[in-house]
């Protein structure tokens, strides 16, 4: 039997909003320690990896490892019925389940909704992502990053990200013209979610498709800050922490000058 009770249903709503436009169907791997999801977009240019540890749940029981093939649009429809402060309970048999139950309990306990969603058979490719030392890490406000990606996508379909010791520059150009947004490394980190910290081992200069970055920033409500990890000729990693009990990480392959 797999059963997980989340005190704040709003978190699951935000997680679905963060993944459903990038990955339509996903394999939710549930084991004794955590629920993990890894999925790629149809073009295999971008990947999302979600991890939510058992400690995020008020109650978590997973007698045997079980993989739930979820259609994220169906799951999102159910979660649209949930209030942010509803308790959400996920339940599934642990012997090749063909469905998953979701129970929503209102905070005052006067309203209980239960849904059964059919699981889908998915044969996606899972990628092995090696632990990597990155040349640059940029930690910044998630709202600021969302704003920059949205603003620059009016000028072009790609953003060039260059990191130096002092700052990180986001550039885009197209027929409208050229736009550069430069963030300077904050000297004093008084309010974490408003400062920019650049941890640089060596300068990087990479180009990425803004279409995918604007899909990644759907995770903005999950965390006040976002961390970008970059290395020359390597996929970009955009990470949103889920409190202390997990993360949503997006990987995006660079566009490389021919």
């Amino acid at each position: 039997m797999f059963e997980a009770k989340l005190q704040q249903g709003g978190l699951l709503k935000k997680i679905l909003e963060s993944v459903k436009d990038l990955v339509v169907d996903g394999l939710w791997d549930c084991d004794g320690a955590a629920i993990t999801l890894q999925g790629m977009d149809s073009s295999h240019v971008a990947l999302v990896e979600m991890l939510l540890r058992a400690e995020a749940f008020e109650h978590y029981r997973c007698d045997r490892n079980v993989t739930l093939g979820m259609n994220h649009n169906h799951l999102s429809k159910i979660l649209k019925c949930a209030n942010n402060d509803d308790i959400v309970i996920l339940k599934a048999a642990d012997q090749n389940p063909d469905s998953c139950s979701l129970i929503l309990e209102s905070k005052n306990g006067e309203k209980t909704s239960d849904f059964v969603v059919s699981l889908v058979r998915i044969d996606t490719d899972q990628l092995g992502i090696p632990e990597t030392e990155y040349s640059a890490h940029v930690k910044m406000s998630s709202g600021e990053f969302q704003r920059i990606c949205r603003d620059l996508s009016q000028f072009g379909d790609a953003v060039q990200i260059t990191c130096s010791k002092q700052d990180v520059k986001f550039s885009s150009s197209g027929e409208t013209g050229k736009a550069n947004i430069t963030l300077t490394h904050s000297a004093t980190v008084d309010k974490e979610e408003e400062s920019v910290t650049v941890d640089l081992k060596e300068p990087v200069d990479l180009t990425f498709a803004l279409r995918f970055l604007n899909l990644f920033t759907k995770a903005t409500p999950i965390s006040d800050t976002v961390t970008l990890s970059l290395s020359q000729e390597a996929p970009l990693v955009v990470e949103y922490k889920i409190g202390d009990s997990g993360h949503i990480r997006y990987f995006l392959a660079p566009k490389i000058q021919e």
Binding site: L47, Q126, L127, G128, A209, F251, P254, E258
Partner: peptide
């Protein structure tokens, strides 16, 4: 114009 790669250029199938 820069060419878009895909992730399998960088990561192997698990």
């Amino acid at each position: 114009t820069p060419i878009q790669n895909d992730l399998q250029e960088f990561y192997s199938l698990a």
